[in-house]
Design a binder for these strands. Structure first.
Lengths: 147, 147
DNA sequence: CTTCAATTCTTGAATATTCAATATTTTCAA
DNA sequence: TTGAAAATATTGAATATTCAAGAATTGAAG
C-alpha cells in the first residue's frame, strides 16, 4: 500500500493557489470599476480607512491597506499632490506622521464606495447570499488563525 | 427609517479586502518556506504546472500561474538561464513556444513541493480540516461563478 | 543626564512589472 | 491565392515596488 503522498496534488488544489486566483479575479473586477474614477484599489482603501476622520500613522495605514511602508509613502506622496489627503506631524510622538483625508478626498471616496458596493452586489447576485457570507466568515477565521 | 446604506461598511467587511488580506498572509508564509530554496512562489507554480512533462505554451502558462504575458516571459528568461526549463518552438503552430521542465527543474520541484506540503499541513493543523476543505470548495465556486 | 538600542518614516538604487508597440505566424474571407 | 485580421510571444520604455540604508525621535538602562 503506497503512502498517500500529497506532493503530486495539482496546484489548483492548494489553498494558497485558490486564494491567489480568487483574489486576482475579484481584484481585477474591482479595479475595472474604480478605473471609472481613475483610482487604483489601494488608494480607495487608503481613503476608506482615513474616512473615519481620525489621524492614522503611516505604520498603521500600511498594515490596514496591505502595503509595505515604502510603497505606501510613495503612494501617499501622489495622493498629497492630488490633495486627497494630507500629512500632519504627530504632536505626541514626532517620529510619527498622521494622515488625514481632505474634503476633496471625502467626495471622491463617496463615489468610490458606491462603485465598490456595486461590485459586492454583483457578487451577491451571481454567487449567492449564503455562500458570500459563509466565505467571508471562513476568510476572517483563516486570517485570525494565522496570527 | 433610514435606508440601510452599505456604503459606510468598513473595508474589513468587503469580500475583496478579505481575499486580499488572506492571500497576502498565506502567500507570505509560503514565500518564507520557499525562500529556503531561493525560489519565488511564481517559479514554483511554473515548475509545478510543467512537471506533467507536457509542453505548455506561454499563454496557457500565463493563465495557469496567474501572471501577465510579459512578466512571464521575463521570469522564464531567468529560469532558462538557471536551466530549470527550456523553450521549444511548437511545430504545429510556429507562433507558439512550448515550455518544458528540465531534469534539474524536476529535482528542484520535488524539494519545493515538500516545502509547500509542509505549509498546507501547518494550515490544516491551526485552521482545521473541515474549515480548510470548506474554504477551498467556496473559493472554487467563487472562481467558477466569476467567469 | 547620557548613551545606546528601538521605533518610525523616508530616500535612492536595484528590481520587477506593466503598457504599448513590434514581429511572426496563422486564419479566413473574398 | 491573396490580403486583412487575429493570435502569440517578445521587447523597450515608463512605472511601480522592494531592499537596504539613513535621519529623526523616543525609550530606557546605567
Amino acid at each position: 500500500m503506497a503512502k498517500p503522498s500529497k506532493e503530486n496534488t495539482p496546484i489548483t488544489e492548494h489553498l494558497a493557489y485558490l486564494l491567489a486566483q480568487a483574489n486576482r479575479e475579484i481584484n481585477r473586477q474591482l479595479e475595472l470599476r474604480l478605473s471609472k474614477e481613475g483610482v487604483p484599489v489601494e488608494q480607495w482603501r487608503i481613503l476608506k480607512v482615513l474616512s473615519d476622520g481620525n489621524g492614522h500613522s503611516m505604520g498603521e495605514l500600511a498594515d490596514a491597506v496591505l502595503l509595505n511602508h515604502p510603497t505606501l509613502t510613495k503612494m501617499i506622496d501622489r495622493m498629497v499632490s492630488d490633495t486627497l489627503v494630507y500629512r500632519v506631524q504627530d504632536p505626541n510622538d514626532r517620529r510619527k506622521v498622521l494622515m488625514f483625508i481632505s474634503d476633496r478626498g471625502k467626495v471622491l471616496c463617496k463615489r468610490l464606495n458606491s462603485l465598490a458596493v456595486d461590485q459586492e452586489e454583483h457578487i451577491l447576485e451571481s454567487y449567492g447570499d449564503k455562500s458570500t457570507s459563509e466565505l467571508k466568515r471562513l476568510l476572517e477565521s483563516l486570517i485570525d488563525s494565522s496570527n
